[in-house]
């Protein structure tokens, strides 16, 4: 039984080598919920929230690299918020201020809940997730990283070290429906990212499927039918976009909502986000 507080990647890997089945803890805001409830019994723990290399971000013009230990409070604020507004808006909806101070983007990836607030934005941004182990590093597109509800491609001994997202020109936003005006788990969420240079619209849905769902049909439809130069989309285009988002959803009934409402909600949100991105008729 041990709790190792790693302060460097080398220390983290050493600890992971010694205890390959150790529980990795960054902010602890997911793990401790399970531990406190007795649903998870921890023996060996490797704390990675103070690994210097993981707690930094790097902006090199076209790309933004966020270390896994970057917190939601950091993402919510400038300058990160200016580069990736979709993640910043998502950050503002993560739990409470207390959660955002310690909760990390790496933790969101590690838990990989379909309701994870950071994930639709990462999906829409075509984020690349970086994993490392003593054997080396590998990088996966988000879509390959998240393989199911709370299931990822990470293998034992591997550490999520960060994520790379593009810094795009164009509107982006995140909306989430919950029955409370703060501190609520998404019953449905939508991230929309526009790329004025690449002339694309990207749409990702949360809480309406086993993974975050990208809506490729809606995206293709929008790219072909919006006016990027004038920031315009017709009411008919917005309506069809919403319908395609609804069609892409694969929701279920549970205690938080119904499949029917979730499907309806992602359509409404997708339409509203497209309108925010293209405010002119």
């Amino acid at each position: 039984m041990s709790v190792i507080v790693a302060t460097s990647l080398a220390e983290a890997f050493a600890a992971l080598s010694a205890h390959p089945e150790a529980t990795l803890v960054a902010g602890g805001t997911d793990v401790m919920v399970e531990v406190n409830a007795g649903h998870r019994h921890v023996a060996d723990v490797v704390m990675v929230n103070r690994v210097g290399e993981l707690c930094t971000w790097r902006h090199d013009g076209a790309m933004l690299h966020l270390g896994a230990g970057v917190t939601w409070s950091q993402i919510e604020a400038a300058p990160i918020a200016e580069w990736v507004p979709v993640l910043a808006q998502a950050a503002r909806t993560v739990g409470s201020p207390q959660i955002r101070h310690v909760g990390t983007i790496g933790g969101n990836l590690g838990t990989c809940s379909p309701a994870g607030d950071g994930l639709p934005g990462l999906a829409a941004l075509d984020a690349v997730v970086h994993l490392a182990s003593p054997a080396g590093e590998r990088s996966l597109p988000f879509a390959e990283f998240m393989v199911g509800p709370k299931r990822t491609a990470r293998v034992a001994g591997e550490l999520i070290i960060g994520v790379t997202v593009p810094v795009l020109r164009g509107w982006q936003g995140y909306s989430k429906v919950g029955v409370r005006n703060a501190m609520v788990i998404a019953t449905a969420s939508v991230a929309l990212v526009t790329d004025l240079d690449g002339r694309t619209v990207r749409l990702a849905l949360g809480s309406v499927g086993p993974t975050i769902l990208r809506c490729t049909e809606a995206e293709a439809f929008a790219a072909a039918n919006v006016d990027f130069a004038n920031g315009a989309a017709s009411a008919a285009v917005v309506s069809e976009f919403a319908a395609l988002a609804r069609a892409a959803a694969r929701p279920i009934d549970d205690h938080r909502s119904t499949a029917e409402y979730r499907r309806h909600a992602v359509g409404v949100l997708a339409g509203r986000l497209l309108r925010r991105a293209f405010p002119n008729e």
Binding site: V3, T29, M32, V35, Q98, V102
Partner: peptide, 15 residues
């Protein structure tokens, strides 16, 4: 930083 004490692993808060 304001945090929830219930979500902090005590042994991880050394230092």
């Amino acid at each position: 930083q304001l945090v929830c004490g219930c979500l902090v692993l005590a042994a991880g808060a050394v230092g």
